[in-house]
Design a protein around this nucleic acid. Structure first.
Length: 221
DNA sequence: GCGACAG
DNA sequence: ATCTTGTCGC
């Protein structure tokens, strides 16, 4: 599994095989052991492949911040749609490692990926911890638009397979794309997404991590 | 061949 | 993701 961190190649066919292995390991059942804390992870990029990864630990369901961490890292792998994990997984693991949460929310897809192995799932499998993905836009799959009211959602499907949900976290605002990462059910992922979005489109864990990553980037450039 | 395409 | 000011709307 360390091959995910240090890919033996940059050949996309080989990396696809690694992702298929990750997909085989994903646990779609809810294995959360008491949900009292939730962490949000995000990364901001400045020039020259210099990145700032941030992780914020929040209490659940109060969403009060407990702790956070940011790191500066060099990134070599480029952004290639469907291969995001090979660019962002390592920084995310490093910033996430010291913050112990009952579940980690990632600003990316999880199961809702062509090979069923988005960044959120990679993180969960490598850490062997529950994760879910909440993305701002669609990577693959199709879904009916959910109704306008906050709380409504529709299933995201690839053919007949359900790979995630399109969730309205705020009335009248574009929905987010929710999918399981690891050791969680889609129903629970949707519930957590809604419970952590009291005011804005994006869930608080992701908003907090995004703000922190951006702040770290501006502060050191 | 053409369009789509997380961050 | 990042580059960037004002502006429309609740």
């Amino acid at each position: 599994m360390l091959r995910i961190l240090k890919p033996p190649t940059t050949d996309l066919d080989e990396l696809s095989k690694i992702q298929r292995k990750v997909a085989e390991i994903i646990v779609k059942r809810d294995e959360i052991r008491g949900l009292n804390t939730i962490a949000g992870c995000d990364i901001s990029f400045s020039k020259k492949d210099r990145a700032y990864a941030a992780c914020v630990l929040l209490k659940y369901p109060s969403l009060k911040e407990i702790d956070n961490k940011t790191i500066e890292v060099g990134v070599n792998f480029p952004y290639i749609p469907t291969f995001l994990a090979f660019r962002e997984l390592e920084p995310m693991l490093r910033v996430t490692k010291d913050l112990k949460a009952d579940i980690y929310m990632v600003d990316a897809q999880g199961l809702a990926h062509p090979r069923r192995a988005g960044l959120a799932s990679h993180l969960g499998v490598v850490m062997d911890r529950p994760t879910l993905g909440v993305a701002k836009s669609r990577l693959c799959g199709e879904a009916e638009p959910p109704s306008d009211e906050k709380g409504s959602y529709s299933l995201l499907k690839d053919g007949r397979e359900v790979i995630g949900a399109v969730v309205r976290t705020r009335t009248g605002v574009n929905p987010v794309y929710v999918s399981i990462g690891h050791k969680i059910s889609l129903e629970r992922a949707i519930e957590i997404t809604l419970n952590t979005s009291p005011k804005y489109k994006l869930p608080e864990p992701i908003r907090a991590a995004h703000k922190l990553a951006t702040k770290a980037m501006k502060g050191r450039s």
